[in-house]
Amino acid sequence: MNNRNKIFIFFLLIICILGIRYSSEDREITQLEKIIAEFFRPAQQFAMENTRKIIVFMEGVSSYPAVREENERLQEQLDKYQMELQREKEFYFENIRLRKLLEMEMTSTLSLQAADVIGRSIKSWDDVLIINKGEEDGVDLYDGVMTYRGLVGKVFYVGPHTAQVRLLNNRLGSVPAMTEQTRFPGVIEGIGDGSGLLQLTYLPYDAPVEVNQTIITSGLGELIPKGIRIGYVSSIQYNEDGLIKKAIVTPFEDFNRLEEVLIIEQIHEVSP
């Protein structure tokens, strides 16, 4: 390194030290510095905006497991609350139904016993119910089963703590019945076509049975008491020869929605 270079370097060193000294204290920004700052501003703005976007994205990515965990926890809580809410709803509707049953049990002259529907026949959904009362609860074979809306069927199998009820819409579940208004007797049974409708069969063509008449139990056979509502006549169908007709009866109760029922104690015990 020659002397000229050494002098130049020394000169630069002095300039630098003076510059450091000059700019180490608070001072007003020079015009040149303002221009430089303006020159950098758009690029800085662009870079900072995009950096923030990237940071937000990265934070989102890094917090994903925690967010997912929280989401799962909240989802579990939500499911739990929904389940509880559903149970509350169930209790509410059960309460309404039981109130009606209780009202009936209290006001009826019949000897009634409440039971819960705990199952349905696997083979024929519409036709058989399984209830949680059996022989030890005093349930007998052929006991009538009803709701506050009307008769729904009769017991055809009794276990110690359960019983099976054949619903009226089962073809085998026939019950002696009559029209409420004209007291004309007949036998009511299921049509068996899956429609849930019943029929009052073998009526003479001139029998006083008309649409909208109410069908009730007749009490014949002394198994099911007289006067329990079953349904109403929704149409009349005549036989081909015109000598016999049948009344199509729509039951008051929807047999697909039974949850609680009342078992009617028989007038006379029947040995199976």
Binding site: L12, L13, I15, C16, I17, L18, G19, I20, Y22, S23, S24, I29, L32, E33, I36, F40
Partner: peptide, 21 residues
């Protein structure tokens, strides 16, 4: 290094010459 440092110093506006040096 000197020129780059000096530009950096001017950009920062404080201790001008320190980075250059």
């Amino acid at each position: 290094g000197f020129v780059i440092g000096l530009l950096e110093d001017v950009f920062v506006g404080r201790l001008i010459g320190s980075n250059a040096l």
